[in-house]
């Protein structure tokens, strides 16, 4: 399986995402923001960082990159896409996910090891977890406060599209403690914390992040074996 990782100008965790994909057993394929060709990858990760310096609004410029135009089309067709941190912000700007990520309520960048509860395992990126499972994954952001209007939030909850919530403290003020959400089909997931930083005992607080990457491999294997949509299990 081949997982593409997009590098935008200002992407920072692209190498880490590629490493995580490799550790999970995939082939990591580096994609360039200016190249619309996705080289036939089976899934895509939009990594963390400060694309274009985040100078206009986080992710606002990156969504117009040639690579993103292809990814938006492919995601609508079912390609599994995981947006981490800046990647989550890009997915919201691209309208593949609802809502927006705003300045942390305490106005500081915050980096800590964060407990999350996996709320939905019906996505391409979380099917390897058990519902309600608690995981420990680093969070690090300055603009990670998830906001949406009440109706959207209600719908996300009702449709089981809240993928993960912060537990034991909300690090940024996200509404309803939302740390990750998915689209209706379950193939596109945006997550604020960084699973790619929790894949090795030597460098991470846990190995819990690996589950996101092994999940997508499982979804892809299932899809190719049974012709299923990657999102559904």
């Amino acid at each position: 399986m081949r997982i593409g990782v997009v590098t935008f100008p200002g992407s920072l965790d692209d190498g880490d995402a590629a490493r995580a994909a490799r550790i999970a057993g995939a082939e990591a394929v580096r994609l360039w923001h200016g190249d619309p060709n996705l080289y036939g990858v089976d899934a895509v990760v939009l990594p963390g960082g400060f694309s274009y310096g985040d100078y206009l609004r986080c992710g606002a410029i990156a969504r117009f990159a040639p690579a993103m135009e292809s990814i938006i089309d492919a995601a609508r067709g079912g390609l599994p896409v995981l947006g981490i941190c800046n990647g989550f912000q890009i997915l919201c700007e691209a309208h593949l996910l609802p809502g927006a990520l705003t300045r942390n309520q305490h106005l500081h960048f915050r980096n800590r090891d964060q407990h999350l509860r996996i709320e939905s395992t019906d996505t391409a990126w979380t099917n390897g977890f058990t519902p309600g499972q608690e995981v420990l994954i680093p969070v690090k952001n300055g603009e990670g406060c998830y906001v949406a209007d009440e109706r959207t939030l209600d719908a996300l909850v009702a449709e089981g599209r809240v993928v993960a919530r912060y537990t034991r403290g909300n690090p940024n003020g996200s509404q309803r403690d939302i740390a990750a959400i998915t689209n209706e089909a379950g193939n596109v997931v945006g997550i604020m914390p960084h699973p790619e930083h929790a894949v090795e005992a030597l460098t991470g607080p846990s190995l819990d992040g690996l589950g996101f990457f092994t999940s997508v491999l499982r979804a892809l294997a299932g899809a190719s074996a049974g012709g299923q949509q990657p999102g559904g299990q």
Partner: peptide
Amino acid sequence: VTEQYDRYVLGNTV
């Protein structure tokens, strides 16, 4: 103070 710094990026911080 230190929470305001990213200590994870590049994935080699032991």
